[in-house]
């Protein structure tokens, strides 16, 4: 099977989706497309079903949070064509209050847990996901920890004084914690 060039793929995609693809970038060895979230699933399905390209391996899927950007919530998906050894990365953005993307589970079964993890970390909802619930954290957690506004530290530590690094002992002593409760 002849290996398609990256230009061929880019041309085929822009022919098919036109203005749905906002831009193509190249970062190191990767070609990255920023796409409209409306075509998120179609683009992966097109690449999957295209006999010439055969992007049939979902490498990874994750969220990114850019708190200062106009569209802070980003979803990144990466596909691999094992036959041709080509890799592509797609990004889509959203600025909604309740972030919702379409689910890739219809194309790749592997997306199931990756999307659950993304939901768990960032709170993105995936439309069409069969069983969207938290996967790594406890079910009754009331926030999405990977968003930049939440701290990494455990709130129950009272023995650390990291004033130099932005954490005061008084924030974490037992009394204050109890009062907060």
């Amino acid at each position: 099977m002849e290996k398609p060039t990256i230009e061929e793929i880019i041309n085929a995609l822009s022919e098919k989706f036109g203005s749905g693809i906002f831009e193509w970038n190249r970062e190191y060895d990767f070609h990255i497309a920023t796409v409209d979230k409306q075509i998120w699933v179609q683009i992966f399905r097109f690449l999957y079903e295209n006999e010439k390209f055969r992007f049939r391996y979902l490498t990874t899927l994750c969220g990114v949070h850019y708190p200062d950007a106009p569209q802070p919530f980003c979803l990144v998906g990466q596909v691999h064509s094992l036959e041709h050894n080509l890799r592509l990365r797609f990004k889509t953005f959203s600025n909604e209050h309740h972030v919702e993307f379409d689910s890739l589970t219809g194309v790749f079964p592997a997306a199931n847990w990756m999307e659950r993890e993304t939901y768990d970390f960032y709170g993105y909802r995936f439309h069409g996901h069969p069983d969207l619930k938290r996967i790594l954290n406890v079910d009754d957690m009331d926030y999405f920890p990977m968003r930049k506004e939440y701290p990494v530290e455990d709130r129950t530590r009272y023995d650390k004084d990291d004033t130099m690094f932005g954490r005061k002992r008084s924030d974490f002593d037992r009394k204050t914690l109890m009062e907060k409760k």
């Binding site: 190191y28 990255i32 490498t59 990144v76 990466q78 990365r89």
Partner: peptide, 19 residues
């Protein structure tokens, strides 16, 4: 920049996606 690098770990493709 952003970079993805993967190695063949004990269990398979171990990737690091760094922004």
């Amino acid at each position: 920049g952003e970079v993805y690098h993967c190695v063949e770990g004990g269990n398979g493709e171990l990737g690091f996606y760094l922004i």
